[in-house]
Every structure is written in C-alpha cells, then in structure tokens.
C-alpha cells in the first residue's frame, strides 16, 4: 500500500474516533448537570483539560461554562480537535483515498461532515441540549466502524484503519480517566473514600462502559474502575485491550511474528503492552494514577511517532507532519 495512502487512512480513522470521543465526553457531562441540579456538577473545564488543550481554550479569554465549552469542543473551526475540525480533516483524508475505502464509507463520512456543518450553523439548539447531536455523532461513527468491519477487506488498509482508531481510543480513555480521577481524588491516598457514585457512573457511561463494568465488578469502586478502564481484557475501550489489538494490527501489516519486533513501532508498543499486561491496579495506584497516565500518554505518543517513521515518513499526506 502507498505510504501516502496508509498515512491518510490512519489519520482519517483517528480523527473519526476522536470526534466520537469528544461527543461522548460532552454527552456525559451534560447528563451530569441534569443529575446535580443547582450547577454543582457543572464542571466543564475538565473536558478541555482532558483533551490536553487547556492553553488553547484559555487563549480565547472566554469563561469556561457549558455554552462556551460545548461550542469550543464541538464546533470551533479554529480549534483543531473540535468535532467539526476532526470531521473536516477526516473528510480531507478520506477524499484522497476514495479509491481505497468502500463507497458506503465515503458517503457516510461525507454526509457526517455535512451534518456537523449544518449543526454548527444552528448551534444554539445543540448548546441547549447536546444529547441528540452527541448521540448522532456516536451513531455515525459506529456506522463507519461497522462498514469498515463488514464491507472492507481485512487487508493492510483495514489494519491501518484499526491501528489509528485503537491508538486514539487508548489515548482518550486514559485521558478521561486521568481528569476525572484528578477532580474526584486529588491524592492517591484518598482512594477508597469520598466516593461520588454519580460522577464515577458518569465516567463509565462516557465510554459505554457502565453496564459492562457492572457485570464484571458489580459495585462502583474507584480501584476497580481504574482497573476496568486501564487493564480489562474484554472491554473494547480499555487501554490494554486497545493497545493489544493495535499491536496485532501492526504485526499483521509487517508480518513479523508476535513476540518479536522488526521496527521501532513494534518494539515500543510491545514493551508498552508487556508492561501493562503484567501490572496490577495496585501497582498503578502505588505509582500514583496521574503520574501513571501521564507516562502512559507519553509512551503512546512515542508509538505514534514510530508508526510515522516506520510507514509514512517518506511521504506525509496533506502535510502529514501537521496531523496530530
């Protein structure tokens, strides 16, 4: 497969996953506000921090309330990680690989893009009640995933599609965990006290994990939640699950047997998966959750850099160096 094409499909997929995750974050925060009347639960700034873009928002000089932050995260055309920007960039990438992806996928991405553009024009409705918009964004992206799984050959293009998506998901799951944990329990020694059931349930709901968590662990306990989101072997949004699948995609692309590495991307992701796989949640807590996720994100970024260097670097698509 052309390097340029691989780059485009990887980033197309990452941007779509990113858009979906932002919609999930917005949706859950909105529901939190409904559960805690009087504005006590109206914590919107943490969402911006979860994206790692506090500085970008602060530079706008706006108060951090529901309206400004939904507008920022969903529609701001100048903010590169807004849902609108993600869709525009996903579509730009998709446009250059229309011959690779199924027609149905292109049409979904295209109509999805137009949907978000239209929503941005009448965004007051979304600011008042983001539920329908967020739900639609989630559904659209799930449809695209479904098309990828069932209408695309599971060949190299599919592996790059999955790779981008899984790395993005692992990153976002770790970020949402980090931020919520940071708000709720600023000190690692506080684990096990001051549970705020509503907040934790909301966190799980944000990544469609509440029901799966209940079946696995029953009661809401912070340590078990951390374990579930970071280390669960079955839940498809947990960090370890996503990274192991991403590793399998990498090896499918290169043909290197699992357990070995032939390039820096395989080496880094293999080390990361190995470390996580042989770690217990007690180790994570002992280390400090924030320090742990911080380190995790750094290492995931280094995997992404290695993917770029190994497969795309001769030919970045659409000024690929700027995709991130």
């Amino acid at each position: 497969m052309l390097s340029r094409v691989a780059d485009a499909i990887y980033w197309m997929s990452r941007y779509l996953e990113r858009a979906e995750n932002i919609a999930r974050f917005l949706d859950v925060n909105w529901h939190l506000t409904l559960d805690t009347p009087g504005g006590r639960g109206e914590q919107w700034m943490p969402l911006v921090s979860a994206m790692g873009d506090y500085d970008l928002f602060a530079a706008r000089g706006l108060p951090g309330n529901r309206e400004t932050i939904i507008r920022f995260l969903a529609f701001d055309p100048e903010y590169p990680n807004s849902i609108a920007s993600c869709l525009a960039r996903a579509r730009d990438n998709a446009r250059t690989i229309r011959e690779i992806i199924p027609t149905e996928m292109w049409e979904q991405i295209n109509t999805f893009y137009h949907l978000v553009r239209e929503a941005a024009k009448g965004c007051d409705a979304v600011l008042n009640n983001p539920y329908h918009f967020c739900d639609e964004v989630k559904r659209r992206d799930l449809t695209i995933s479904g098309i990828a799984g069932d209408a695309m050959s599971h060949d190299e293009a599919w592996d790059f599609f999955r790779l981008g998506r899984l790395l993005e998901r692992a990153d976002k799951t770790s970020r949402i965990l980090d931020v919520k944990y940071f708000i709720l329990l600023p000190h690692p020694t506080d684990v096990g006290s001051n549970l705020d059931y509503v907040q934790w349930a909301a966190l799980l709901k944000a990544i469609s994990a509440l029901e799966a968590y209940r079946r696995r662990h029953g009661r809401i306990q912070p340590e078990r939640i951390v374990e579930f989101l970071l280390l669960d072997h079955d839940f498809p949004r947990s960090v370890l699950w996503s990274l192991i699948r991403a590793q399998q995609c990498l090896h499918a692309i290169t043909g290197t047997p699992m357990g070995y590495f032939a390039n820096p991307a395989e080496k880094r992701i293999g080390q990361l998966c190995g470390d996580l796989a042989y770690m217990s949640v007690e180790d994570v807590v002992a280390k400090g959750l924030h320090e742990f996720t911080d380190n995790l994100q750094t290492r995931m970024n280094r995997v992404d850099e290695a993917v770029f260097a190994t497969f795309f670097s001769t030919f970045p698509a659409i000024d690929g160096a700027s995709q991130q």
Binding site: M1, L2, S3, R4, A6, E156, I253, F311, F312, T314, F315
Partner: peptide, 9 residues
Amino acid sequence: GYVHMRTTK
C-alpha cells in the same frame, strides 16, 4: 530502470 511506487513495504 523501472517505475516504482513507494509503499509501506
């Protein structure tokens, strides 16, 4: 002496 595409492999 030939034309090639640059691919991931």
